[in-house]
Amino acid sequence: MVSTKLYTAIYAVLFVSATVQVLVEFAGLSYWLAFGVIMVLSAAKAVLVAAYFQHLRFEPRSLTYLVGIGLAAALALTLAASYSLL
């Protein structure tokens, strides 16, 4: 398993990344560039939490796929529904 030290390091990274996410908003980037950066930061944090705090990295891959299927269903609904309006 993972050492407490690594958990602490990940916690620090998450903390900083959350701060950066807000700073991006005030950085004066164009809306959609800021949007992209902010969402990528959220996704990166989510992956870190899932991989280490939920220790998916050390579980059989099937559990990751399981969550991936749920995510795919949610994205399919969101994207296709939004597209249908355009």
């Binding site: 969550v67 749920g70 269903a73 949610a74 969101t78 309006l85």
Partner: peptide, 24 residues
């Protein structure tokens, strides 16, 4: 984990509803 996968879709529905309404 199976339960959480369904909860992903539950929140997906809520976030999807938000995104959809905002696009509209």
């Amino acid at each position: 984990w199976i339960f959480l996968a369904s909860d992903v879709v539950l929140f997906g529905g809520f976030i999807g509803a938000y995104v959809f309404t905002r696009v509209a």
